[in-house]
Design a protein around this nucleic acid. Structure first.
Length: 430
RNA sequence: GGGGGAAUACCAAAGCGGCCAACUGGGACGGACUGUAAAUCCGUUGACUUAUGUCUUCACAGGUUCGAAUCCUGUUUCCCCCA
């Protein structure tokens, strides 16, 4: 069985750790936790680094806890104060917790894991009944304000002069208490987290030592970066979510496929469980034939399969093939309607009555119809003249041409603006 | 409070009476090339349109002129210098 620390090291996932952690883990099965904020009903790929850290922890024979910040998520928003809103919020949180748990189950073994099966805990369970007075007396007493203010996260805010509410200031104490609670009740001796969590985590180990003289450890993973300096995990459309409703498996697959060469090798180490030899091999393959993009393909397939399963991966690959491969009108015609709709799921679709459709004179009339593809005929014309428009995969050359395209499945037209922008026109009989 | 300067399209920045819908760079969007990449090259970038046309723009409101983004007056905002 792989050694957790070694594993993280070669994967480039080890930022920092407290002394003694390595020895501690060598003694036998240990437990660690990592927190997620239930701010939405889905995780996004930024969370996956944390998830994978837990995965490696479990694969190394240890017991992972995924902590959902039900309590911290609740106090995070000061506008939810009234009892009524609070209750509503609780429902949302429950919903979010349930969704996130479902997603985590794809990565971690919750049921069949045996002694080191994963567990989900929610800090709402132990924080909700904790009175403020009890908290500041039993917990706050052990940590000095001086200590808390020395944290980078706090220091920076003070220096910026942007202000820091007491609530935000106390956050590290609450997170510290979570660690204490799990250490005390669940024998959880390690907290994992992103490098930005170092200060909060260490407050926890400090609390454990002060309150009970106990020993606990911290380990952080580096922030995921992109080689061009832009923020990881964002596309023009926003976050890349794990929820297929929010980010289609196709878009998800495409995200990974489009990762730069430099990033691909790193991401392969971080986001997949492929072993060292396999990755090294892929890197060599890539070196010899970079245009084949072996790294990206493997990365996209691995991660999409992990998150969405084989079925969805297959559809995503098929869709990519049709959208970007050298597909023709013939290939399109050969698709059955179900596959067609699946491939073009999420593509804007305009429904148009047959009578109205036949009244259109030129292509530009169609393209500017209800401002669907273009806001004006002028723009449509310019795009056609620039050679940037295809219908049913066949490039248009004359802006003044009439409409004489064969409808796919007798009712669809596939309009393509540029390389990646698709639109579908559906002609309805009647 | 006194003196000087500036406001131009998504951003930056030319233009200083007609040749200006406005140079140029960036960005954005297309095309070629390619690896659905990078780099490079090309095109488009006020609106409607395709006629060698119309309309709306150069802080805002007026004025001079056949004609102004360009000159004059007032207003607003910003910058610099002196108190």
């Amino acid at each position: 069985m792989a050694d957790f620390i070694d594993e993280l090291k070669w994967r480039g996932m080890l930022q920092d750790m407290t002394p003694g952690l390595e020895e501690h883990l060598k003694k036998g099965m240990a437990s660690a936790y990592l927190g997620f904020d239930p701010t939405a009903d889905s995780l996004h790929i930024g969370h996956m680094v944390g998830v994978m850290t837990l995965v490696h922890f479990q694969r190394a024979g240890h017991k992972p806890f995924a902590l959902i910040g039900g309590a911290t998520g609740m106090i995070g928003d000061p506008s939810f104060k009234s009892a009524e809103r609070n209750l509503l919020n609780k429902e949302t949180l429950d919903h979010n917790v349930a969704c996130i748990q479902g997603q985590l189950a794809k990565f971690l073994k919750f049921d069949e894991g045996g002694a080191n099966k994963a567990e989900l805990v929610n800090n709402y369970d132990w924080m909700s009944g904790f009175s403020f007075l009890d908290f500041i007396r039993d917990v706050g007493k052990y940590i000095t304000v001086n200590y808390m203010m020395a944290k980078d996260s706090v220091k920076r805010r003070l220096e910026e002069g942007s202000g820091l509410s007491f609530t935000e200031f106390s956050y590290q104490l609450i997170q510290g208490y979570d660690f204490y609670h799990l250490w005390k009740n669940r024998n959880c001796s390690v907290q994992l987290g992103g490098s930005d969590q170092w200060g909060n985590i260490v407050t926890g180990t400090e609390l454990i030592r002060k309150m009970e003289g106990g020993e606990a450890y911290a380990l952080t993973v580096p922030l995921i970066t992109k080689s061009d300096g832009s923020k990881f995990g964002k596309t023009e459309g926003g976050n890349v979510w794990l929820d297929p409703e929010k980010t289609s498996p196709y878009a998800f697959y495409q995200f990974w496929l489009n990762v730069s060469d430099e990033d691909a090798a790193r991401y392969l180490r971080i986001f997949t469980t492929l072993n060292r030899e396999t990755i090294t091999e892929l890197e060599e393959t890539h070196q010899q034939a970079p245009h084949l993009r072996a790294l990206q393909k493997e990365l996209a397939q691995q991660v999409t399969r992990l998150v969405h399963g084989d079925q969805e991966l297959e559809t995503a690959m098929k869709a990519s093939e049709i959208l970007f491969g050298k597909s023709s009108l013939e290939d399109l015609s050969n698709l059955d309607e179900r596959t067609f709709l699946q491939v073009f799921e999420g593509v804007p679709m305009l429904e148009i009555a047959q009578t109205a459709f036949h009244e259109l004179d030129q292509v530009t009339d169609l393209l500017a119809f209800e401002k669907f593809v273009f806001p004006s005929k002028g723009e449509a014309r310019k795009m056609i003249q620039g050679g940037g428009l295809s219908i049913n995969k066949e490039k248009l050359s004359d802006p003044a041409m009439g409409i004489s395209f064969s409808l796919l499945q007798g009712k669809y037209l596939l309009i393509q603006k540029g390389k990646k922008n698709y639109f579908i026109v559906k002609v309805n009989p009647s």
